[in-house]
């Protein structure tokens, strides 16, 4: 009996339940299978606590054998289990909002009884930490990309649209204002040394957007400085005429102009 052996911890692995390293139950029937039902509901682990009595086990079986309406949002195993208010059965549910496999301990109100490898991994991938870290990496990558391009002018690898988009996104973000100066510098280097194609046109557009970003942050002198640099670049000897034309068009579009006034 569970009460005699202490806590029993079962892991849900798609169509089977495991206890330790052993499969203790398997059923691959798509509608009837208890493991599949749990798996679909995001349940990753079921723990039976010491002291569990027959009525609670029967209640649990009742829930697990209920035919579920798959289209219903409310009618799922987790909800039904929650409604039963089990006191000796704890479920560990995958956080639906997170793509990482992370147990949502808040849903079960139980401190973690045994740190498994999977959980340790998950803990290392807390989403909010990852996104901040990811952001830092994105900025770093954007800078490295631009630096690499600037350093190898003779055989430039045209940036992919994704990379250009990444750069564009970065310069639009307020917190990257401090690197926008450097970014502008390397962008100028890249633009000046690249062949005319769709990617280099995109990079020039990013320069134009940097101008607007500076305007929006009320760095008018900075915006003017960028426009001046773009104009200088457009006049550079040996620059592809199409690039010069585009630069001229951009500076014309963003140059300060007086509105009609008396």
């Amino acid at each position: 009996m569970p009460g005699e052996v202490g806590e029993i911890e079962l892991f849900v692995e798609r169509d089977h339940l495991t206890f330790g390293s052993e499969t203790v139950f398997q059923d691959d029937h798509p509608r009837r299978s208890i493991p599949i039902k749990l798996d679909r509901a995001g349940v990753r682990r079921v723990v039976f606590l010491p002291g569990i009595e027959r009525p609670e086990v029967l209640n649990l079986l009742d829930v697990l054998t209920t035919e579920l309406d798959e289209t219903s949002i409310e009618d799922d195993v987790v909800t039904l289990m929650w409604q039963k208010q089990f006191t000796h059965v704890k479920t560990f549910v995958l956080d639906e909002l997170s793509e990482n496999e992370r147990f949502d301990e808040s849903k079960v109100g139980l401190s973690d009884p045994g740190q498994t490898e999977r959980e340790a991994e998950s803990a290392a991938q807390e989403p909010w930490v990852a996104s901040e870290e990811q952001h830092r990496l994105d900025v770093e990558n954007a800078r490295r990309l631009a630096e690499e391009c600037a350093g190898t002018k003779s055989k430039l690898t045209p940036p992919t649209p994704e990379e250009v988009e990444s750069l564009r996104r970065e310069v639009e973000l307020q917190e990257t204002c401090d690197v926008s100066g450097e970014l502008a510098d390397v962008l100028f280097d890249v633009v000046a040394g690249s062949r005319e194609d769709a990617s280099s046109a995109n990079l020039r557009n990013v320069l134009g957007q940097l101008v607007v970003m500076r305007m929006r942050t009320a760095d008018f002198a900075g915006a003017n400085g960028l426009i001046q640099q773009m104009q200088d670049l457009a006049k550079k000897r040996g620059l592809d005429p199409a690039q010069a034309r585009h630069l001229g068009e951009l500076t014309g579009r963003y140059s300060p102009r007086s509105t009609s006034r008396k």
Partner: peptide, 30 residues
């Protein structure tokens, strides 16, 4: 007018250009 437009995130490019024309030295150049 300046502060109103600066505070307005929806200011269009034309409005911004007008501001730059009025206050070309505002802000710090990088």
């Amino acid at each position: 007018m300046k502060d109103v437009l600066i505070a307005n995130p929806d200011a269009n490019v034309e409005e911004l250009q007008a501001l730059v024309a009025y206050f070309p030295r505002r802000g710090s150049s990088n």
